[in-house]
C-alpha cells in the first residue's frame, strides 16, 4: 500500500478510521476525552499508554463491543471509510464482519480447526448455507496459509482449536477473521498471553498482514510497539497526547510525558 506521510487532512481516502471529538463515559466516569484520531489505511497503528488510559476503550469503541456493558454513553463520531459507525442504523453484524477483533487471551471456539476458520462464513453467508466442501477446503487453506499455520496444521484440521498451543491458537483466531474479508483488524494486546517465541511469531504475522488490512493494536509492550507498528499513538488519562510515526516517536518524542512513558519512568 501507499507509504504516504501522515497528514492532518481529514477528507482524504487514506484514512481508514477517523475519530472526531469522541467522548465516552462508563456511568459517571469519563474514559475518553475529545479524542481525535486518524488511522491510515493499510498501516499498523499501535495504541500505547499506561493502564487505564483509555486505549482499550478506544479500540473497543471502533466495533462497538463496549456497548454490551449497557452503561456506556458516547458522543462524537467514529467514521470507518467515511461512514459513522455510531449511527443507530448501523447493522452490528455487518460492522463486526468488516472489523475483526483479536483478544488478549486467544479464544478459539471449541470446534475443530477447520470449523473455527469456517465459522465466520457460516455466520455471514447470505443464504445461511455453508459453502460446499471444495470451496470450504479452499477457504481453510487460504486463511491458514495467510497466518502461517497451514504447514503445521494441514494434517490436523480436525483437532480442536482449543487444544493447540497458545501461539497456534492466537494465529487461528486471526485466521478465523480472514474468510469474511474484514478491512480492519483490532488487536487488544494480542501477544501478552504468549511466550517470547510465540510473541515473535505472532508479531511477524501481524507485520506480514499490513497493507492487506488496516491494523489497530493496543500494546503494553514498548518494544513491540516499536518493532511491529508503523504509527504510534500515545494516550494518557483518556486523551491522545501524541500521534506520530513510530520511529520518530521513539527517537524523538514531542511531548515530555510521552518521553517519560516510553523510557519506562511510569507505566
Amino acid at each position: 500500500m501507499s507509504a504516504e506521510p501522515v497528514t492532518s487532512d481529514t477528507a482524504d481516502a487514506s484514512a481508514a478510521i477517523l475519530v472526531e471529538k469522541l467522548n465516552l463515559w462508563y456511568g459517571d466516569f469519563q474514559a475518553l476525552l475529545d479524542v481525535d484520531l486518524r488511522v491510515r489505511a493499510g498501516a499498523i497503528t499501535s495504541l500505547i499508554g499506561p493502564s487505564g488510559c483509555g486505549k482499550t476503550t478506544l479500540l473497543r469503541s471502533v466495533n462497538r463491543i463496549n456497548e454490551r456493558l449497557g452503561y456506556v454513553r458516547t458522543t462524537g463520531s467514529i467514521r470507518l471509510w467515511g461512514l459513522d459507525v455510531l449511527d443507530p442504523s448501523v447493522e452490528l453484524a455487518q460492522l463486526r464482519k468488516q472489523v475483526g477483533m483479536v483478544f488478549q487471551r486467544p479464544n478459539p471456539l471449541p470446534l475443530s480447526v477447520r470449523d473455527n476458520v469456517l465459522f465466520g462464513t457460516r455466520v455471514h453467508l447470505p443464504d445461511g448455507r455453508p459453502p460446499n466442501r471444495a470451496e470450504s477446503d479452499r477457504i481453510v487453506e487460504e486463511a491458514l496459509r495467510e497466518v502461517l499455520l497451514w504447514d503445521e496444521l494441514k494434517d490436523s484440521l480436525d483437532r480442536r482449536g482449543t487444544e493447540l498451543s497458545l501461539e497456534q491458537q492466537q494465529k487461528l483466531c486471526i485466521a478465523r477473521l480472514l474468510p469474511v474479508k474484514p478491512k480492519l483488524l483490532l488487536m487488544d494486546e494480542p501477544c501478552s498471553a504468549l511466550d517470547p517465541a510465540g510473541t515473535e511469531a505472532v508479531e511477524e504475522l501481524i507485520w506480514k498482514l499490513r497493507g492487506d488490512y488496516t491494523i489497530l493494536i493496543v500494546t503494553h509492550n514498548m518494544a513491540q510497539a516499536r518493532r511491529a507498528s508503523e504509527e504510534c499513538v500515545f494516550m494518557l488519562l483518556g486523551e491522545i497526547i501524541e500521534h506520530s510515526d513510530t520511529a520518530s516517536m521513539f527517537l524523538n518524542p514531542a511531548n515530555r510525558q510521552t518521553a517519560a512513558y516510553i523510557e519506562g519512568r511510569y507505566g
Partner: peptide, 25 residues
Amino acid sequence: LAFREACWNMGATRWQTIRKIVLPN
C-alpha cells in the same frame, strides 16, 4: 463467556451463538 464473545465479535447473533457453540457444550 469468552466463547460467546468470540462469536458475537464475529457478528454472530445470540441464536447462532447458542446453536453453534453454547448448546453443544
